[in-house]
Nucleic acid binder design. Structure first.
Length: 547
RNA sequence: GCCCCUAUGGUCAAGCGGUCAAGACGUCGCCCUCUCACGGCGGAAUCAAGGGUUCGAUUCCCUUUAGGGGUACCA
């Protein structure tokens, strides 16, 4: 068959590939610089897995002095959602994973010389390369309808699968003559363009995956679709064309793509492009109700959407560090040794990524987050907290900002010590944790508390309390009071003979804490009392009488 | 069905032919302590099963099992 003639028939208006190759010359980058990309399909949110990939991409690009760009893969018309690309971009920004190039939340705001970075805007490019493949005899039109007649693709494939158990597929439309094709085109029939695979399932090729290492995989033998009948390419073709033209050097993608790697490689080959390096990453999973591991799912798992972490108030760095910990497990050792450095300084490496699908662990996340927050200053905590509250808890935000000095001093309790407390893992816990500072005491945790002892102790203590006492004096007074009321001031003595006392100083402190906070658990009560001020302290002491 | 990937404690995991099988989270105990926490110390807990190869297998090979993924004109 005259393939050039066929190409003209199929794509009469397509530009030459040379045109595009000239328009998008090879990137001039220093040696070793890697170009990476995140290429989500805009479905209205950013998957936690995307953040995970974005982190790999960004760190890899940064480390090598390269570029990380964002491309929108909006080739599935059925799944298009308005402004989904904006959301994806802004989520990346909010996690400090901002791309250097590409789509930036708005069609007009793209930067970079290799655009358009939205696939639906690149149809002309795909046509040119599709045409070139037809010219080279490496692609053919297929007129089969997915939904009708004996040529029903699915049906045929199903049958073939049952009969031969093989995925090899020499498409019948390969045999169409030029005349037949011309006829169908004249009749206005739509066609899909397919790859004329010359692969052999019995042969293998060796590939080197950056994570999986050297592997032998079977050749592709499927005549995969290059252009859908609506004129839009599916993933594989868009991937091959775009990543070649845009100069991607490393493609980071989920492991679910690994089985189609041989098809993609054949495509690059047919196109005459050198394929990029690949890194097929593990997929973040979780344990479902039946005890089975499964991929994080948008529908079932709120944590599949990175917005979840923002709403809950996990600091973005904590989330990133958790992900980083999943990626390179030596990160946490590095973190303990370098408590003050940014995670960006960590010697990240793709090759250190394990190949197991990790299970998402909220407890570990909380631990990382608590540690992170404990390292922050009160001002930093205040700023982040307010930023969160502004969006998710307006009332609390008002209280915080109207009393900013007070708020900061509350947040500063036990923070400047060498071993700061680790009570807070996410911002939505703060209000509840410090409610007695911001809202007064709603109810007292008085189970297992001897109320008469409590009242006696507080009554006596209210007399001696003086807010001007320094901490030494403050505690001396408590000890004196303990002696006076019959509480032990020596823990060892108390333990030896508990019956001899009403309790020990610890109990006395618990009473004071209860009076001040309503709780048995709180940060340093000396500080709390100071911040509250004498009037409020005395008021709270008085309030105990009523309990 | 067929193909691919994976398999170390409850979780994340080091390990890459000879280790008393790191470390972290969680858990338990003790200590410190004005409670809780923080911190310190210690304990329990892992090589999926069965075959090979080898002087020697957690490590290499095979089988089984389990889990994940793919098998779309979805990505």
């Amino acid at each position: 068959m005259d393939t050039e003639k066929l190409a003209k028939l199929l794509y009469p208006n397509a530009k030459t590939t040379e045109y595009w190759l000239e328009k998008y010359p090879k990137r001039e980058l220093k040696k070793g610089a890697e170009v990476t990309r995140l290429a989500p399909s805009p479905t209205g949110y950013l998957h936690t897995g995307h953040a995970y990939s974005a982190l790999i991409n960004k760190l890899t690009a940064k480390k090598s002095g390269g570029i990380f760009y964002l491309r929108l893969e909006d080739t599935d018309q059925k799944r298009l959602i308005d402004h989904a690309g904006d959301i994806a971009y802004h989520m990346l920004v909010s996690y400090d994973l901002t791309p250097d190039e590409g789509y930036r939340g708005d069609e007009l705001a793209q930067i970079g010389d290799y655009g358009d970075y939205i696939q639906s805007k690149r149809l002309g490019i795909y046509q040119s390369f599709a045409k070139s493949l037809v010219e080279k005899g490496k692609a053919f039109p297929c007129f089969c309808k997915k939904t009708e007649g004996i040529e029903d693709v699915e049906e045929r494939r199903q049958k073939q699968l049952e009969e031969t158990g093989n995925i090899e597929e020499k498409d019948p439309c390969r045999e169409l003559t030029y005349e037949q094709i011309e006829e169908k085109i004249k009749n206005g029939e739509e066609f899909a363009l397919k790859l004329k695979s010359n692969g052999n399932l019995d042969k293998t090729i060796v590939v080197e995956d950056l994570i999986k290492g050297k592997r032998e995989i079977r050749e592709n033998a499927k005549d995969i679709v290059l252009m859908k009948s609506n004129g839009i390419p599916p993933y594989a073709f868009a991937h091959a064309v775009d990543d070649s033209l845009m100069g991607t050097t490393i493609v980071v993608r989920g492991e679910e793509w690994y089985p189609s790697l041989s098809a993609h490689l054949e495509l690059f080959n047919a196109l005459g492009f050198k394929p990029p390096k690949y890194a097929h990453t593990p997929v973040i999973c979780k344990l479902d109700k039946n005890g089975n591991k499964r991929k994080l799912s948008k529908r079932k798992d709120p944590e599949a959407d990175v917005r979840f972490f923002i709403e809950e108030g996990y600091p973005k760095v904590a989330v990133i560090e958790y992900l980083l910990n999943l990626l390179n497990s030596d990160f946490e050792i590095w973190r303990t040794n370098n408590p003050t450095l940014s995670y960006k300084e960590f010697p990240f490496s793709i090759s250190k990524i394990g190949s197991n699908n990790p299970m998402f662990d909220f407890i570990k996340l909380a631990d990382i987050s608590k540690n992170y927050i404990s390292r922050l200053s009160a001002d930093e905590v205040y700023t982040m907290l307010v930023e969160w509250a502004k969006r998710f808890d307006i009332d609390f935000c008002k209280i915080l900002t109207e009393n900013s000095d007070f708020s900061k001093s509350v947040l500063n309790i036990d923070r400047t010590t060498p071993k700061p407390r680790k009570d807070i893992a996410k911002w939505n816990e703060v209000k509840n944790y410090y409610d007695y500072m911001f809202y007064g005491i709603k109810n007292y945790q008085l189970e297992d508390v001897d109320k008469s002892k409590l009242k006696e102790a507080i009554k006596a203590y209210s007399v001696v309390y003086n807010e001007n006492d320094d901490k030494q004096v403050w505690f001396e007074k408590i000890k004196n009071l303990a002696n006076k009321l019959g509480y032990a001031t020596d823990n060892k003595l108390y333990k030896q003979n508990p019956q001899a006392y009403k309790g020990n100083v610890a109990d006395l402190c618990t009473y004071i804490r209860l009076a001040l906070t309503g709780r048995k658990n709180s940060p340093d009560i000396y500080e709390i009392a100071k911040i509250l001020g004498t009037r409020e302290v005395q008021r709270r002491f008085k309030n105990i009488e009523k309990q």
